[in-house]
């Protein structure tokens, strides 16, 4: 089975958006374009407020992804887990659609008897190992995130360690919001390695509003740009994987 690259946005934030478009609507828009949105809520000792929590879960739900709220100490382990989980979830969706074409009707893996599910799982595992993965990382740099940024940097380096253990290709890009001039600012263009983050993160300044919605909207355009450029260069039309679940 051949699939195109998986496209994910990983949003790392510690609370509620307070300006611009509704981020949940932007997440739904992303899903329509075949881009999955995962959200990680970073807590301090205090608990994230109810409103923030609802938004975090809402974005992931309508973005077809996974969300998780964690204390900053657990960030590394969570970031890689969430990314992998969302990847498997998407691939499962792909395999399920394929199965439905073979089996007909609304049949999914789960409708097969347990003994027959194993082989399907092997296909999902194999795809998870080999598929190309593009992750756009979107980091909230509003004032409250200031002392969490070193942990975020560690977690992202750890993520690239995890994903680069796969046989499949990875591409990462990193954006922060709010940017100096715009809602969102590019820190790192598409690259297979995140090591260069270390020096860039040291120079980051925090402050300002939390324009989560506008940041998501703009992030989507960076996938488009890359896609059109690549299809121009290679000339083949890649079948991008659509929504999951």
């Amino acid at each position: 089975m051949k699939t195109g690259a998986l496209r994910q946005i990983l949003l790392i934030t510690d609370g509620c958006s307070n300006t611009g478009e509704d981020p949940i609507a932007m997440a739904a828009l992303a899903k329509e374009q075949g881009i999955t949105i995962n959200v990680i809520g970073v807590m301090e000792k205090d608990i994230i407020d109810e409103q923030g929590l609802t938004e975090i879960e809402g974005i992931a739900l309508s973005g077809g992804g996974v969300s998780q709220v964690v204390y900053s100490q657990q960030l590394s382990q969570t970031v890689q887990m969430v990314t992998r989980k969302a990847m498997t979830q998407t691939l499962q969706g792909v395999v399920n659609r394929e199965l439905q074409q073979i089996l007909g009707g609304g049949n999914t893996v789960e409708d097969l008897p347990p003994d027959k599910r194993g082989e399907v799982m092997e296909v999902v595992d194999e795809l998870g190992e080999t598929v190309e993965l593009n992750v756009l990382i979107l980091v909230d740099t509003s004032a409250s995130m200031k002392h969490k940024l070193p942990t975020v940097k560690e977690a992202l380096l750890d993520l690239s360690l995890s994903l680069n253990a796969r046989a499949g290709e990875n591409r990462f890009s990193v954006f922060v919001f709010p940017g100096k001039r715009n809602d969102v600012e590019k820190l790192l263009d598409w690259t297979p390695k995140l090591e260069s983050l270390t020096s860039i993160f040291a120079k980051l300044t925090t402050g300002g509003m939390t324009p989560t919605g506008p940041a998501l909207r703009e992030a989507l355009t960076y996938f488009k740009k890359k896609r059109s450029l690549r299809s121009l260069l290679s000339g083949d039309d890649e079948s991008f994987i659509e929504e999951s679940v």
Binding site: T88, Q92, V109, E110, P114, M121, D125
Partner: peptide
């Protein structure tokens, strides 16, 4: 999560 059960069973 049926898939994680299937995966461990494998």
């Amino acid at each position: 999560n049926g898939m994680s059960i299937t995966s461990e069973v494998n």
